[in-house]
Amino acid sequence: MPDQRPSDSQALSILVIDEDEIRASIIREGLREAGHQRVHVISVMDGLVRAVEDLAPDVIVIDLANPSRDLVEHLSQVSRAVRRPVAMFVDQSDAGIMEAAISAGVSAYVVDGLRKDRVKAILDMAVARFTAYSRLRDELESTRQALEDRKAIDRAKAILQKLRGVSEEEAYHLIRRKAMAENRRMGEVARALVSTADLLTGTDP
């Protein structure tokens, strides 16, 4: 096989494998901003081997939840046309960056022989963006949760006002006291109250 190792002056070909298409495009943008123009994204497992044969990537970035990881690691045992991918972390001195990458949920492979310092920046960027993305997703989730809590509390207040003849403010304090006494969130108490009321009045959820 001819030596296909990229020289330092050549642009690196980078393949991003991620089933989360939004996250994959965030990574692609990050790579483009860093000056990498040869970036390809695959988000389905089908035809992965063929894609790697065709693209001949120097670097593969893959999300850890991706079941294709066992395949990527051993592509060269599956296809003779594929240059041997090796993990970016090969010795104990890489333990820190490996820990960071795994905690962030991403891993990367480079073709054998590629200088590690050329690609370390790629992994650092991927780790940072994976972490930012999951923080964003957590924030979105908590915003959604807060919105739903708010809706449940409003409904619960209305039910209490009607059933017990209290003011809106008193209804709010009733829910809050109950939540504090039972060490639960107000949203949970409100939801329990709403579903109980639905049961008693025969309202289908």
Binding site: L64, A65, N66, P67, S68, R69, D70, I102, S107
Partner: peptide, 10 residues
């Protein structure tokens, strides 16, 4: 886990 590579690395 989703892959043996993850099990090994973790």
């Amino acid at each position: 886990e989703t892959s043996w590579a993850n099990v090994r690395d973790r």
